[in-house]
């Protein structure tokens, strides 16, 4: 797979050196082993030689591998050093990982669920998580760094060509781990500036459902995921469990608000208590906007 970041070439060089050496060593060792097995089989060689050691040989095969692995270390470190050296003029993007979606926030406050970046400009990432550990992984950039709750990790890249690149969560994070995917879209700098400059205003309800990660678990088309679907939810009658007791409720504005702020207080029967409380993560206006959308679904 072709690299697409300013340092992917350096990483690939280390890959070629290390994997290439490894393949040669493996072929060499295996060939010698098979040759000995055939050449010195008992029918050919009934009288073994009792060779206990050979200082020259043993010194040689201790020293040469030592040099070899030090070169490998150097190659690995050389690429890594560039990865860790974040350019000062880099554009800042905050990566917010949560179970099981990505949100990218730009310096002007603009938010997106795909990482849109300008080709040829360095992008500095401030990686955060609001629940468990996730890991930001873009294979084409040879870049991976964990998003750890309670701290901010740092990374950077500069895309060298336009294109769409897969973005994976690489640290196991629960049920929908393998669905925690997104894209990095690298576009020409001018297009990017235009895109960034367009003020979309406060995001309206439908977009909030994506941005806040709601749809990672709740579908809007009625299909079943690990949480109740939003479709037809408003106004429906549900059996919920409150403090271990089942009871019937009607899904109204008050219930939705409570379920967003304290999701496990009245849990719909048959579902796991998985949703983290959204207090501090949504404003009152945003909750109102979401409720309006749910009424329509």
């Amino acid at each position: 797979m072709n690299g697409a970041s300013s340092y992917s070439g350096l990483v690939d060089k280390a890959f070629i050196f290390i994997l290439g050496t490894s393949v040669l060593l493996l072929i060499g060792l295996t060939a010698v082993m098979i040759y000995f097995l055939v050449r010195y089989r008992r029918s050919k060689n009934p009288n073994p030689a009792q060779i206990a050691d050979n200082v020259t040989l043993e010194t040689l095969w201790t020293v040469l591998p030592t040099i070899l692995v030090l070169v490998m270390f150097y190659y690995g470190w050389a690429g890594f050093k560039v990865m860790r050296d974040i350019p000062e003029d880099a554009m800042q993007v905050t990566v917010k990982a949560q179970m099981w979606s990505w949100v990218f926030e730009y310096e002007n406050g603009k938010q997106s669920t795909e990482l849109i970046v300008p080709t040829g400009r360095p992008v500095s990432l401030n990686l955060t998580s609001s629940d468990v550990i996730h890991s930001f992984f873009v294979p084409a950039f040879r870049l991976k760094e964990d998003c750890v709750p309670g701290r901010t990790n740092h990374a950077w890249f500069e895309a060298t060509r336009d294109g769409e690149f897969n973005l994976f969560c690489a640290e196991y994070c629960g049920e929908r781990h393998s669905a925690m995917l997104s894209l990095v879209k690298s576009i020409p700098a001018r297009e990017f500036d235009e895109w960034l400059g367009v003020d979309t205003g406060p995001p309206e309800g439908t977009r909030l459902l994506t941005l806040k990660g709601c749809v990672a678990c709740h579908t809007i088309d009625g299909s079943k995921l690990i949480a109740p679907t939003f479709k037809g939810m408003f106004g429906s009658t549900e059996t919920v469990v409150t403090d271990g007791v089942s009871r019937q409720i009607t899904v109204d504005e008050e219930y939705i608000r409570k379920s967003i702020l304290d999701p496990n207080a009245d849990l719909v029967e048959g579902y796991q208590a998985l949703m983290p409380p959204q207090r501090d993560l949504l404003t009152d206006e945003e909750i109102d906007a979401i409720i309006e959308v749910l009424k329509e679904l």
Binding site: I18, L26, K144, E145
Partner: peptide, 19 residues
């Protein structure tokens, strides 16, 4: 053992880790 070398080197392990 040989595939472990690429995990010991920094830049290559960054790519390979958790894959």
């Amino acid at each position: 053992g040989l595939t472990g070398l690429a995990n010991g080197a920094l830049s290559t392990d960054i790519h390979l880790h958790d894959t």
